[in-house]
Nucleic acid binder design. Sequence first.
DNA 1: CCAAAAGTGTTAATAGTACACCCATGA
DNA 2: TCATGGGTGTACTATTAACACTTTTGG
Lengths: 232, 232
Amino acid sequence: MEPELPKFESVFSIDCVIFGFEDGVLKILLIERNDPPFKDWWALPGYFVDRDESIEEAAKRILYTFTGLRDIFLEQFYTFGDVDRHPQGRLITVAYYAMIQLNGKKDLKPTSPFVKKAFWHPVSDLPKLAFDHTQIFEKSLQKIKRKITYRPIAFELLPEKFTLTQLQNLYEAILNKKLDKRNFRKKMLNYGILKELDEKQQGVSYRAATYYKFDRRKYNKLFQKELSFIKE
Amino acid sequence: MEPELPKFESVFSIDCVIFGFEDGVLKILLIERNDPPFKDWWALPGYFVDRDESIEEAAKRILYTFTGLRDIFLEQFYTFGDVDRHPQGRLITVAYYAMIQLNGKKDLKPTSPFVKKAFWHPVSDLPKLAFDHTQIFEKSLQKIKRKITYRPIAFELLPEKFTLTQLQNLYEAILNKKLDKRNFRKKMLNYGILKELDEKQQGVSYRAATYYKFDRRKYNKLFQKELSFIKE
DNA sequence: CCAAAAGTGTTAATAGTACACCCATGA
DNA sequence: TCATGGGTGTACTATTAACACTTTTGG
């Protein structure tokens, strides 16, 4: 048997960058803080991890109590630990990002007393955020820019049915550059991971676009070998 | 002024996966632990972060005291925080990897009392490691496999002067697959980031290979836009 | 002269890029 | 009939993949 060793306590937190996409605009979820430090500031949803929950569980719990959102796939992307990043002492934060279908998830219902409100905000126009959250956001954007080029994570941001133009707008919003329409469509359709639906747009005053669906099964077969997904 | 807030104390640690390359074999640096828990086990170099040092400073300090290695570029790649990953309580660990030129750095001189010895071990044949270090190593390998395909981090593992065959062997060791010699050379030379030297191998009983040097300046110009570096 | 690794080119297939007009729809 | 976005093809270039023999060197 090993001798009895002292127990230690850890204090650490998580922050979440939740991306959504609406009206061709890339947004993230912010909260207004209800408590000091940074009371009344806008911030990323984040809080302390309980001692008996995994980091991911914590991320999910905090996201739920801060926003009412559930069942979201979160991916860890970086850990921030500068000595002076929190006024109450040394605190490290494990940061996660997620991408969600924003439609139908507009009315956010925080139940946590630490949150005054939760809301979506365009990434192109972010104000100064609490703590080092601006830096955390920037790192997350950097990560997803890279990731959408080799993994089809962008589909997470779109509704079940979407048009190719919506998909292209999303890529353009994340990569922050224009793409060629014909080449984009050719490429996306070539992968064979989009299923064309019979359904078309309704009630638009221009030619109705065809809806497509992401075919996750075909994707899984195709991308087991981790191919490059789109060139930069 | 904001009201006085309670201070908190964090306990967390770092672990390092240090890659080296020698005789065509990819290796990592292990230590033999001198203290419980997992006394006498082999482990990744890692220890607690001091309260007034950044995570990266801690990683450098710990690596130095555990191995005698200095001035190494460390890159954070993941944070491990399962509830039961450490027998003394909840502990999260920020993991870093580094790639170093192994030649001339074979005699490792740990000064820390927590370390019995430090040594290089082939990755192809790792024993069971302390804590969740096997899992940490596997994640690091996954990360560098991806990274060498778009960034020339592999050069860090080679001596200043190297032959194209050495470079190819390294890629093959990391990716764990054979590459075509002609295509590999063509591609590497095409990037224009290798400088051919006048020098050739000495004293080999076969045609002497030309030495090359990595041209960091040209690389920086070329890869500002983060191109894809090698296809998988 | 043998063993061992260095070094070298071509071809075919695939993927990427650049580019402009007609189509369908509702108002 | 007009405004709006949907939808389409071709030619060129670049990249990738497959593939085998000659050269140099020391022993």
